[in-house]
């Protein structure tokens, strides 16, 4: 009888969808609230935190460095070849500096972390969930939020800004080397114009973004892994969802922070 009524009523699937969405947002909010609470209250576990810092931070260095270096180089080439119509090559160092520190450094670092870290976290915690390791933690008087989630969130908050700062440096160096070796810029002049132009605010906005992105990357991995169900397939689904939600939220947060920063010059 209920099924018959649903067929006739086109609004009921819509209503169910909205309710499901609200339930998902509610569950995610409560998860994030518990995660933050576990991060700021004891007990703190040192070893898991060090392990996460190593995995998220140190092991991400090569991929973040390569991405930033090539992007800085490509950005410089693009500006000169495409921007010559408006004499953009006159302000090449300034555009590269702005593009890298405010936008590309933090966003590309976060996307690389979404691919590396959110996926790894979701897969690991998802496998722990489906093999009852998270239940086992609880029976051993250990809160999974304190032991599993808090170290990952903290590591994300620490590693993302550090990696972004490194990506900024490498990206600027990439732009500089293309300008110097390919486009015959004067090396000292290019570097001086970059440093004169860059304000602490440019780098600061990028690092604030990185802090937020680090939280997003860690939390989306944890959230999706934590609620994984149904064996290998569930873990696979959690991993995909971890990466996708992290990447989309990074872009959304990027716009929001850029907007807020622009509103307050």
């Amino acid at each position: 009888m209920a099924a018959g009524r649903e067929k006739l009523d086109p609004l009921s699937p819509l209503g169910r969808g909205v309710l499901a969405l609200l339930a998902a947002i509610g569950a995610a909010s409560s998860f994030i609230g518990r995660a933050v609470w576990a991060t700021i209250t004891p007990p703190w576990y040192g070893r898991p935190l060090l392990r996460q810092l190593w995995a998220m931070g140190y092991l991400s260095l090569p991929v973040v460095g390569l991405t930033a270096g090539f992007t800085g180089a490509a950005l410089a080439l693009n500006i000169v070849s495409g921007g010559s119509r408006i004499n953009a090559d006159q302000v090449l160092p300034q555009i590269v500096a702005l593009g890298i520190t405010r936008e590309l450094g933090p966003v590309l670092t976060a996307l690389m972390l979404a691919g590396r870290v959110s996926a790894a976290i979701a897969a690991e915690i998802g496998a722990m969930r489906t093999s009852e390791q998270i239940d086992a933690l609880q029976t051993l008087s250990t809160d999974p939020f304190h032991y599993l989630i808090a170290p990952r969130l903290l590591a994300g908050l620490l590693a993302a800004p550090l990696l972004t700062a490194i990506a900024d440096l490498v990206g600027l160096a990439g732009g500089w080397s293309v300008a110097v070796y390919h486009l015959d810029f004067d090396p000292r002049l290019y570097a001086e114009r970059t440093l004169d132009f860059l304000s602490p605010g440019d780098v600061g906005v990028g690092l604030v973004k990185a802090l937020v992105f680090g939280a997003i990357v860690a939390l989306m991995g944890c959230l999706n892994g934590f609620r994984a169900t149904g064996g290998a397939r569930g873990v696979g689904r959690a991993t995909t969802q971890g990466v996708v939600t992290a990447a989309v939220l990074v872009f959304a947060a990027d716009y929001a922070i850029t907007y807020l920063a622009a509103a307050r010059p």
């Binding site: 093999s131 239940d135 086992a136 029976t139 008087s141």
Partner: peptide, 20 residues
């Protein structure tokens, strides 16, 4: 709760050992 559960121990079906 923690004090009560500290007096218990559980063996899981798949052992549920921490593989890390």
């Amino acid at each position: 709760r923690k004090a009560l559960l500290a007096r218990t121990g559980m063996l899981f079906q798949g052992a549920a050992l921490f593989d890390s």
